[in-house]
């Protein structure tokens, strides 16, 4: 019981504390990839920038636009953080797992599926046509990526024979990393993950160039920040999940003897995927809406269904 509470505090603390440094790193990485220094003014090489941002956001006027649906408008940002933290609660980091659950993988999927309602609600309640369009885009996007994502995960689940992360990692420590067996599912997951967290090249609900700020156009201050907390926590959670599913999670040399080492391995693997989202953002322009939908429905969906047969064959032979 005490162990569970400690793990819960650790995971919630980690998720909330990790977000500001990640935003700093993102801006730094983006800057250097685009041959500019990134934030430089506040502190050494701008390391105190997140703190400055936090102070600014906290003291900003909190505006609720006239004609907005007050209740839903206030509810949407908190829902975004709430759903992301719920998803984080079942993901084990090394030996630390806040809520042990047999169907943990499915639970993560369910929570990230409903986290999209934060965007839809924000778009609907803002009483702004740009936000409204962004909300509709978010709804269409979730319908597009949900199926390829589900099938990519199902391929992995068929192979491992379990929804439980502990069993999945165990399987991989016996037979080798999942990416060796299911490279297609791995790539599908990475591709769709960008759409799931609403990051470039699939950040259509934000779409600064055509929708002002998309769903968060009307938000200010901490409510605005809450959306980013939700988004970044989702990125962390899905990066942890992808390294659990395909890169062996916390397994690695000496991880059996020293569980702390396992935690570090896992966080390290996840850090690579977080870096990958920055990299994607610096590299690719945003897809057009119809392009996104046809990629999801016409290309990724058939590939992911065919991939299920591969996974079934592998499960027969490797077992």
């Amino acid at each position: 019981m005490i162990e569970n509470l400690l793990s819960m505090a650790f995971i919630v603390g980690l998720m909330l504390v990790a977000v500001p440094p990640i935003t700093y790193l993102e801006r730094k990485v983006l800057g250097h990839m685009q041959q500019r220094p990134g934030p430089m003014v506040v502190g050494f090489h701008g390391v105190l920038q997140p703190l400055a941002d936090a102070i600014k956001l906290i003291f900003k006027e909190d505006i609720i636009p006239k004609g907005a649906d007050r209740l839903l408008f206030m509810f949407a940002p908190s829902f975004s953080v709430f759903a992301a933290l719920l998803a984080a609660s079942v993901v084990p980091i090394g030996f630390i797992q806040a809520v042990p659950m047999k169907s943990a993988l499915l639970f993560v999927m369910a929570m990230s599926a409903i986290s999209i309602y934060a965007l839809i609600l924000a778009g609907y309640s803002s009483n702004d046509k740009y936000s409204f369009l962004a909300g509709m885009r978010a709804a269409a996007q979730v319908l597009g990526y949900e199926l390829p994502l589900g099938f990519a995960i199902m391929a992995a689940v068929i192979l491992y024979g379990s929804f439980d992360f502990n069993r999945i990692v165990e399987w991989q420590s016996q037979h080798g990393w999942g990416i060796l067996y299911q490279p297609v599912a791995f790539l599908l997951f990475l591709f769709v993950m960008a759409a799931e967290v609403g990051r470039p090249p699939f950040d259509l609900p934000e779409g600064e160039s055509e929708l002002v700020g998309g769903f968060h156009t009307e938000y200010s201050g901490m409510r605005f920040a809450a959306f980013f907390f939700g988004e970044y926590i989702n990125i962390i959670v899905l990066s942890l999940v992808v390294s659990l599913l395909f890169l062996g999670g916390w397994s690695g040399p000496l991880a059996d003897k020293y569980p702390v080492l396992g935690v570090l391995y896992h966080l390290g693997k996840a850090a690579f995927f977080i870096f990958l989202t920055f990299w994607l953002r610096a590299t690719f322009p945003r897809y057009r809406f119809d392009q996104m939908l046809s990629i999801m429905w016409k290309i990724l969906l058939p590939i992911s269904i065919l991939n299920l047969f591969v996974a079934a064959a592998e499960a027969l032979f490797v077992g």
């Binding site: 639970f107 599926a113 409903i114 309602y117 269409a140 979730v142 319908l143």
Partner: peptide, 17 residues
């Protein structure tokens, strides 16, 4: 969980859309 995924993640989104 499947209830939440199927109805929350797909069907109600479709309705709202």
């Amino acid at each position: 969980i499947v209830q939440v995924i199927v109805y929350g993640g797909a069907i109600v989104v479709l309705y709202l859309f």
